[in-house]
Amino acid sequence: MEEEKLIEEAKNGDRTALSQLVKRYEQTVYNFAFKVCRDKDKAENTMQETFLSMVKSLNQFSGKSKLSTWLYTVVSNHCLMQARSNARFKFASLDDEDTGINESEIVDWDIAPDKLTENEELKKHLDNAIQNLNPEYRIVFLLRDIEDLSTEETAKITGLSIAAVKSRLHRARAFLRNELNEYVKNERN
């Protein structure tokens, strides 16, 4: 059934339609929450909170944007709130970081992304690298590069200007790439 119709029926009290919406989006929401939080328990909790919020506020959903955009917004806000409350953890500051390239540090990467599931050590490095990235930048990177949302959609979800999204995306990509470059270099030696 079309999403618009499902939403309309759920708004009218059809619980089967509501259940279908949950089923349709639970994987996307959980996977995105995990990518932001990097913790399966926190991601599950975020998924539950997100759908509770959806059930509670569905009547206020105007349908002007996609339901997925609205869900991404709820997950992002929830994860940002969690990160801010955990003030003990200090993230690398990227606001004035020079994202220039040290040409002597450039090595040829020889990694097959489709073999990732077999490589626990690489997964650990991916977790560490993105955990060191400020969540405000992490969310932009995940929405634009991983979830393939447009710059405009990302700006709407995060409340940032288009220029700020582009700038944060650039810095986040460079930061993650530089963090992983250390792993690649060590693997080659």
């Binding site: 509501l18 259940s19 949950v22 089923k23 639970e26 994987q27 959980y30 996977n31 995990f34 990518k35 399966k40 991601a43 599950e44 998924m47 539950q48 759908f51 509770l52 059930v55 450039i106 040829d108 990467w109 990694i111 992304p113 489709d114 990732l116 599931t117 690489l122 997964k123 991916l126 993105i130 990177f141 995940l142 590069d145 991983i146 990509r173 460079a174 993650l176 790439r177 992983l180 470059n181 690649v184």
Partner: peptide
């Protein structure tokens, strides 16, 4: 190439909703 690989590695790093997680969610809702 390394920037593209960075993005692809994170794209390929996914987690799945298990049956028990789904059942718990449905119960909560």
């Amino acid at each position: 190439k390394s920037l593209k690989l960075t993005i692809n590695l994170y794209k390929n790093y996914n987690v799945k909703v298990t049956d028990s997680m789904h059942n718990k969610l449905v119960e909560i809702l």
